[in-house]
Design a protein around this nucleic acid. Sequence first.
DNA 1: CCAACTATTGGGAGCGCTCTCACCCTTCGA
DNA 2: TCGAAGGGTGAGAGCGCTCCCAATAGTTGG
Lengths: 346, 346
Amino acid sequence: MIDPAEATVDGRPTPTLEEVAREAGVSRSTVSRVINDLPGVSARAREAVNRAIERLRYVPNEAARSLVTRRTNSIALVVSEPGDRVFGDPFFAGVLRGIHAGLAGSKRQLVLMLAGDDAGDEGEALENYLCSGHVDGALVVSMHGSDPLPGRLATAGVPVVAGGRPLGGAGVPYVDADNFTGGLLAARHLVSGGRRRIATIAGPEDMAVGIDRLVGWRRGLSEADLPTDAVVHSDFSVDGGAAAMAELLRRHPGIDGVFAAADIIAVGALRELTRQGRRVPEDVAVVGFDDSVFATSVTPALTTVRQPVEEFGRTLTWRLLAQLAGERHLPPSILLPTELVVRGSA
Amino acid sequence: MIDPAEATVDGRPTPTLEEVAREAGVSRSTVSRVINDLPGVSARAREAVNRAIERLRYVPNEAARSLVTRRTNSIALVVSEPGDRVFGDPFFAGVLRGIHAGLAGSKRQLVLMLAGDDAGDEGEALENYLCSGHVDGALVVSMHGSDPLPGRLATAGVPVVAGGRPLGGAGVPYVDADNFTGGLLAARHLVSGGRRRIATIAGPEDMAVGIDRLVGWRRGLSEADLPTDAVVHSDFSVDGGAAAMAELLRRHPGIDGVFAAADIIAVGALRELTRQGRRVPEDVAVVGFDDSVFATSVTPALTTVRQPVEEFGRTLTWRLLAQLAGERHLPPSILLPTELVVRGSA
DNA sequence: CCAACTATTGGGAGCGCTCTCACCCTTCGA
DNA sequence: TCGAAGGGTGAGAGCGCTCCCAATAGTTGG
């Protein structure tokens, strides 16, 4: 334990508002006004205070501040995922980067919270925590099924924005990529490449991202009067993608095109196709989704649907900050464009 | 803005200690004792309090608490990186997962902080922030050069553990993988495979992780009296790896083995080798480092040095928590074992 | 010259919690 | 029977800050 006579930079005790005030020859109130950039302070006083702050290396005590203002200057990033996957996914990484970029200059901290496994006891604890004013707002990403959390938070008055369309449909604002159009573009590309027996390795059935891409793909095939029955679901992993590809080949040996709902899945599919001696793209064309680092790290490079991951994160943050700032008439949901990137695999 | 008459779960105002006390028919002190699990409370009172807490859905106000205890129940994860890379790196992802796992059950929150670009103004702000008791401790990872931050924090009395050996050498405790041995194992494997003209694509020159692996590789070649001059540095990216490989082939066309300081670099190297018509492993053997998802997503699968990423994160957290708990005689540094995983590329 | 303002400032009351200390009420040994 | 020794409890004083309100100084108009 640290000595109660708390030490800070070069061993002096942490200065308080009071001490800054004394040093500057003004009152606490004035210092507070300067710190919070409130009007009604003479230039002279303001300058004296700033000098004192500089000299004492004063940093406001966030705890004291948030005790009275009931703001915490921190927002939570809640990841509704068994925790095991999430990180490691280039998509999530990009989003995180975007979130951070969006937060820069806002003086707010990012608190990372993994909503462990299924609801259970921990889920309730998390909800209570978030609802009790420990964060100013929350970003909820990677939801499965109709996760009640975002809705509950919103109901409790905690500003929340979902990353990815919430399945429950609760009136929670969200930001998402245009997954439907992405799936549609992928399907159309395969069709226009002359493929006739087109399958898809869809994402998890309980996530909007999986569903929307699948629906887009279906539409693309239907437009061309092609069958849409070659569907297998997979989680977002290489091995999952490989297993799904194997299953697909078993059920529909005549496949000549595959749309994988994520690059990482496509990588697995590619591996399985190669293993079984099918050439890509000659025998089977493969289209991925994400345009992540995986897309260009395999041979042949993946034709894939690009989604603006970093913008995704930035937009998410922006939306929440705007809400926190009390802005009105914010769009309830924002869809970011997706586009096809053609490379060697299809 | 939210109505000052703050609302929480189902719209009731946030309950305070006082109200719980009233509800339970005891005093604030007793409730506080129950919450903090302190002795000296009769079973009857304890139960009454717990019931009241349950009924009111009471959650302690962290701000008020930390104002008086001077603990925040949160620790910072400081990533000293231009922010652009970091995430997206499966290594970092794994560490993050480990950190989170290590934190589970400790009631502490993880606050993510990116130490933007070079020191500058922002660097000082970050340092002040961390030194002013806003977090109980800090984990600093991905340091470049002789980053002064960890040393400064330690001096200021902020418990800190570095992830990766700090180059400055400041007496900051750290956790790291045994990179030297990893490099050594990689080199020996290439040598024992009959390779005679062995190169390396080392990591950044200003990071311990890059240096240590390089030194290990050198030792491995020296043992076999092989030259150690074929060295090119690269950042941790596919494109960087490809460029480095191209450079290497230009300078040393006779290369028959390459040790890449990271799988992601190896992926780039593989791409360039393929592009130039060299077969792997027939013409050139490639060994990576990390045993990340990339290792098995390319063809041929990478022979690589595995480091226990998740354990890395867990150990980091454990070490910091132990320090926070006031444990004495903690090891100043911890080296985690690395091992060779043989696959197709070498 | 005074009332009526406005610009600037300081004082004080908490925010919700922890923690020390004094005060019970038992129980027990002498 | 009384004093000592505790276990259990509650009152009170802040932690460092914000924010309301009153006070003061400086202007202006009538």
